[in-house]
Simulated assay, not measured.
Amino acid sequence: MSVIRKLLVYFLLLAGSLLILITLCSLIYSSSLWFLQVLNFPRPEVLIALIVCLTAYLLASKQQTIARRVFLTGMVVSIGIQAYILFPYSPLANEAVRSAEPASVNRKSVFSILVANVWIENRQVNDLLNIIADKDPTFVLTMEVNDWWVGQLQVLKKRYPYTITFPTDNAYGMALHSKLPLNNPQIQFLHHPRVPSFWADVTLPDGKTFRLVTLHPVAPAPSKYPTNIGGKEVALVRAGRMLAGHSQPTVVAGDFNDVGWSHNTTKFARVSGLHDIRYGRGLYSTFNAHSWLMRWPLDYVFVSSHFRVLAVDRLPGFGSDHFPYYVQLTLQP
């Protein structure tokens, strides 16, 4: 074996061992060990890296040793773990929320929501307004809004006369603009006093009603802003508990600051009984819009079983570190 080939094999062994370690550590959950929770995020990238590393190793190393068998077993098991966790987001999986044909639904039961984390430092508001005008959603949910952003979005009032706003300078402000009346609106603080969630009841033109909840929980990492580190129960799970057992049709939307396959998000889905509309459709990764390599889904729409999906789309960037996320739904009879 040539020197270059030996070096390549050693590199692949080192890289593969690191990927195996990352995979195993990502299975450990502890709210205080934030760095292990972060390992949940790049599962798609780790899966691709595992497959590339395994393929390259098989081509570069032909020696039949016990160490080689152990390494290959670890690589195959790690690929299986990552693929198993990500499989529900594959088009090969069953849709958690079934699709509906546009021609078969009552248009008065159809509505749409555009979820956009604007990034508090971003100033490309006109690009966002153009996206909103193009998609013309029923609801526009913006997050990380401060007073400047709320002021800039005032131009939406003509088409979206119903609003709930809570601007802040801590990157957790929120604004909801709606074409439909927001009945019994509430601003609740589930875990931090300056991190709001919005709760409202909505009546569609056909008379059917549903509950709309918008969230932007704090990220599971240390921050100069509010942090979840050391918290006993994060906002997402707390919201799930509040929604559990209710038979009312429900939509929960927002930047969850977590991936759909994380402990907290899967627990939220289990406790609340709501479903991620991405299941069976794809990842639709919305963050990081500034990186071609490290991207994963952070913005979500979860719904109860009363709904059907007409459209899902990740929209073009507008200067934020998040892409807008668009969903069109219909509420079944």
Results as ranks from 00 to 15, higher is better:
Pro220Gln: 04
Val218Pro: 03
Thr227Tyr: 07
Val3Leu: 15
Phe41Gln: 07
His306Phe: 02
Ala289Pro: 02
Asn228Phe: 11
Ile85Met: 01
Gln188Lys: 03
Tyr57Gln: 04
Leu86Gly: 04
Arg194Phe: 02
Pro193Met: 05
Thr250Asp: 07
Arg5Lys: 13
Val251Ile: 11
Ile48Asp: 00
Gln188Met: 02
Lys6Cys: 09
Ser104Asp: 11
Gln188Cys: 03
Leu27Cys: 14
Pro161Lys: 03
Ile277Asn: 11
Val140Gly: 14
Thr138Gly: 03
Arg194Ala: 02
Tyr325Ile: 09
Val301Glu: 02
Gln64Thr: 10
Leu47Asn: 03
Gly240Asp: 00
Arg270Asp: 01
Pro42Cys: 00
Trp34Pro: 09
Ile132Asn: 12
Val97Met: 03
Pro88Ser: 01
Leu283Gln: 11
Val77Gln: 05
Pro205Asp: 14
Arg295Cys: 03
Asn106Arg: 04
Asn228Ile: 12
Gly317Ile: 13
Ala67Met: 10
Val234Cys: 15
Phe198Gln: 11
Ala96Gly: 08
Thr250Val: 12
Leu7Asp: 06
Trp292Asp: 14
Met1Lys: 08
Val312Trp: 13
Gln37Phe: 10
Val125Gly: 04
Arg308Cys: 12
Ile66Val: 07
Leu8Ala: 15
Ala219Gly: 12
Pro217His: 06
Val312Ile: 14
Leu204Tyr: 08
Pro249His: 04
Val118Arg: 15
Ala100Phe: 13
Leu39Asn: 06
Phe87Trp: 11
Thr203Ser: 15
Gly273Asp: 14
Ser320Gly: 01
Val52Tyr: 05
Ser262Pro: 13
Thr165Asn: 10
Ile48Tyr: 01
Asn264Trp: 04
Pro205Thr: 15
Phe166Glu: 15
Leu50Arg: 08
Ser31Gly: 14
Tyr326Arg: 02
Ile113Pro: 00
Ser99Leu: 13
Leu329Met: 02
Pro167His: 05
Asp321Val: 11
Phe87Asn: 09
His306Ser: 05
Thr203Val: 14
Met174His: 13
Val251Met: 10
Ser109Arg: 05
Val252Asn: 15
Gln152Tyr: 10
Gln63Phe: 12
Asp276His: 09
Trp34Asp: 12
Ala219Cys: 08
Arg5Ile: 14
Phe287Met: 10
Gln64Val: 11
Arg194Gln: 04
Thr250Glu: 14
Ile81Gln: 04
Lys158Ile: 10
Leu14Tyr: 00
Thr214Ser: 12
Ile85Cys: 05
Leu190His: 07
Ile132Pro: 06
Glu101Leu: 05
Gly254Lys: 01
